[in-house]
Amino acid sequence: MLNIAFIGCSWTQGHKLQYTNTYPYIIHEQLNKDNVKNQVINAGREGASWINYPQTLEYMNNKYDPDVYVIQHTTPDRGMLMFTSPKSKYQRITRDHDVYDNYIQLWDNTQSYYHLTVGLAERIANNEQSELVQHILSEIQRKSSLTENEIIQRVKYWLEHERLHPLMFEKYKQTVDYCDMYVRRLGKKVIHLFWLDDSFVVDVSDSIIVEKKIDFDKYVIDTGYHFDKDGNTQLANIIKPLLS
């Protein structure tokens, strides 16, 4: 049986999509039609950060022993993910969510874990009175001793200074390199996905820059660069030949 693990954020998990419309599941079905016995584990997680990828890799190796790892890398700005939730959530995986005939969806794709992207940071810094921003502010206050103003000031500092610091990208690059080395030392195959064609692409072998391969204007459904089913089918068609 070909055992494939997919690691990533909501781009992999399937933001607001049924699990059958995610690219890991589409690959699973394509392999079934080709009479290739396979198991697919979709460990994509809404708001996942590159910070927790090493722990996720270790968990996947110990529990599932995949033959192939497809790692969809996020961008360095995800380093602020633990700002809004308990650290322990992102350092261990506690359970498998659902299993569908050799397809495992590790996390419920209706869950939300907010990562601090530039767009969201700007909305928080401006103290936008939207339901989303006010919910995030209240959650951070509930889980910390920070006041609303302290949260806003910290977000502004990250937006204007910290996210642009060269060390942020260097730590991100080191994590990408570590993930690549970890899988190769296991003697397993690894495929790297970089979603956007930007300065955060790391030079590693066996990598795909998704934005170069797929027309985002045609298949992206929101400002977070999430694909619809057709976009995920396009991506599945690109990845599948590389699995063998």
Score class of each variant (00 low, 15 high):
residue 2 L to C: 07
residue 6 F to Y: 15
residue 10 S to Q: 07
residue 11 W to N: 15
residue 12 T to H: 03
residue 13 Q to R: 01
residue 13 Q to Y: 00
residue 17 L to Y: 15
residue 17 L to S: 11
residue 18 Q to F: 13
residue 25 Y to H: 14
residue 26 I to R: 12
residue 32 N to Q: 10
residue 35 N to I: 12
residue 37 K to E: 11
residue 38 N to M: 08
residue 40 V to C: 06
residue 44 G to Q: 03
residue 44 G to L: 01
residue 45 R to H: 03
residue 45 R to E: 01
residue 45 R to D: 01
residue 48 A to G: 08
residue 50 W to V: 14
residue 52 N to S: 15
residue 56 T to Q: 11
residue 57 L to K: 10
residue 59 Y to F: 14
residue 63 K to S: 04
residue 65 D to G: 01
residue 65 D to H: 11
residue 66 P to M: 05
residue 67 D to Q: 10
residue 71 I to A: 02
residue 72 Q to T: 05
residue 78 R to C: 13
residue 80 M to I: 08
residue 84 T to I: 04
residue 85 S to Q: 07
residue 86 P to E: 13
residue 87 K to V: 14
residue 87 K to F: 04
residue 88 S to W: 08
residue 88 S to R: 08
residue 103 Y to V: 05
residue 104 I to Q: 02
residue 113 Y to G: 01
residue 115 H to E: 14
residue 115 H to S: 11
residue 116 L to S: 09
residue 116 L to C: 05
residue 126 N to F: 04
residue 127 N to E: 14
residue 130 S to E: 07
residue 134 Q to W: 11
residue 134 Q to T: 15
residue 136 I to N: 02
residue 140 I to T: 02
residue 142 R to D: 09
residue 143 K to E: 08
residue 144 S to Q: 10
residue 144 S to M: 06
residue 153 Q to K: 11
residue 158 W to Q: 11
residue 162 E to P: 02
residue 167 L to H: 15
residue 168 M to Q: 07
residue 169 F to T: 06
residue 170 E to T: 11
residue 172 Y to K: 10
residue 174 Q to I: 06
residue 178 Y to C: 13
residue 180 D to S: 11
residue 180 D to F: 09
residue 184 R to D: 09
residue 185 R to Y: 15
residue 185 R to D: 13
residue 187 G to L: 08
residue 187 G to T: 09
residue 191 I to S: 00
residue 191 I to P: 00
residue 194 F to K: 15
residue 198 D to M: 01
residue 198 D to K: 01
residue 198 D to P: 14
residue 198 D to R: 01
residue 201 V to C: 13
residue 203 D to K: 12
residue 205 S to V: 12
residue 209 I to K: 02
residue 210 V to C: 07
residue 213 K to H: 05
residue 217 D to V: 01
residue 219 Y to F: 14
residue 219 Y to G: 02
residue 220 V to R: 04
residue 222 D to R: 02
residue 222 D to I: 05
residue 223 T to L: 10
residue 225 Y to M: 08
residue 226 H to Y: 09
residue 227 F to S: 01
residue 231 G to M: 00
residue 236 A to Q: 06
residue 236 A to P: 01
residue 237 N to R: 13
residue 239 I to N: 06
residue 240 K to S: 07
residue 240 K to R: 13
residue 241 P to C: 05
